[in-house]
Amino acid sequence: MSQAGAFRLQVGARTLATIPRRLVRVGLSLDAALAGQMPVLPPLGDAHGYRITSLPDTVAACGLLPDRLLRHVQQRYVRRWTDLTIGHDAWLAGLSANARSGLKRKGRKLAGEGRLDIRRYRDRDGIAVFHALTRPLSATTYQEKLLDAGLPENPAPLFAAADRDEVRAWLMLMDDRPIAYLCCTAEGTALRYDYVGHDPALGAWSPGTALHAQAMADLFAEKRFTRFDFTEGDGQHKRLFSTRGVACVDLLLLRPSIANRGALGVLSGFESGVGLAKRLTAVPVLKRLADRVRR
């Protein structure tokens, strides 16, 4: 549990505005989501409400959440994960033929651009090297610039995880220059998809996808973890690499104050407008017009 700071009015990854709110964040682990557990909500104190992430759909619909609080579903998604006990060959066989050929094609394209080197890190000394090499790359990524989800500047939590054998990190270099990274920490026997990024200039070559494919091969071979947890949210990359999932929601529960009702009204109106815009741009004529406007 931690404090979260604001409602973000976002279009894709870009935040247009924020509404300051003090929220107690309650994040469910993958084990808790799979078990369909109702989270224990700590006292609010002076916070405006809760932000609960990865709440199973079945729990959100069962009526056990406090009725006195205002409720708003921020997003619905499948929390995806990979079963690391099935073996690498079975995992590859579960990918579509197009996906398997796509991974090979991306690997060949990258190899044609320069000399590739993938390095792996897990102990304290290795994580120190990884952090020093990766932080400058992280600062250039959209994860850090738009999502505030870059590799942390303070490596102390990663060092502590390394001391417990609960961190795995990978770095791809091209001609000795870092171009993509993946850093994961453990929660129980699951390894979490925590920090990821790549050189934006090489986005067309998908270095992050190629690196993650190698990381999966390493994890299947190591047999230290039973699951790879893609955490909150969904996306094409997660759908490609995962084997299973659980339907979840991210939920806001707020005190029923006038200020909170107003903030939720603004947030709901904005989200409805974004949803309408997405539906309209699916119409071919309007999509072409939107593309011309963006150019």
Rank of each mutant, 00 (worst) to 15 (best):
R68C: 01
D46M: 11
K104I: 02
S54A: 14
A61R: 06
L41Q: 02
W91L: 13
I52P: 03
H72G: 08
D67Y: 07
G45R: 08
T85G: 10
L55S: 10
L55N: 09
S96I: 00
L41P: 03
L65N: 07
H88G: 09
P66M: 00
R105H: 08
T53F: 01
H88F: 10
A93N: 12
A60Y: 02
T53M: 07
G102N: 09
G63W: 01
Q75L: 08
P66L: 00
R71I: 03
G87Y: 04
A60K: 02
R105V: 01
T82G: 09
T85F: 13
L41I: 04
R51D: 11
A93S: 10
T82L: 15
V40P: 03
T58C: 13
H48I: 01
S54F: 03
H48W: 05
N98W: 11
R51T: 10
D57A: 12
R71E: 05
K106A: 15
L95C: 09
V73R: 04
L55K: 07
L69T: 02
A93G: 08
P43G: 04
S54M: 09
P66V: 01
R71A: 14
L64H: 01
A61D: 12
L55P: 04
R68L: 09
W81F: 15
V78A: 14
K104S: 11
P42C: 05
P43E: 08
R79D: 07
T85V: 13
R100W: 01
G94R: 03
V59P: 06
T82R: 06
V78P: 10
A60H: 13
L44P: 08
T58N: 05
A99P: 03
V40H: 08
A97E: 12
P56K: 01
V78T: 15
R105N: 12
L84Y: 11
A99V: 14
K104R: 15
G49D: 04
D67W: 09
S54D: 13
R100L: 00
Y77W: 06
R71F: 05
V73C: 14
L65R: 05
Q74C: 15
Q74W: 04
L70A: 11
H88V: 03
S96A: 01
R80I: 07
A61Y: 00
H88R: 10
A60Q: 11
R68T: 09
G63F: 07
G94M: 08
P43Q: 06
I86Q: 15
R100T: 06
Y77V: 06
L44Y: 06
R105S: 14
V40M: 13
C62L: 11
P43D: 03
S101P: 04
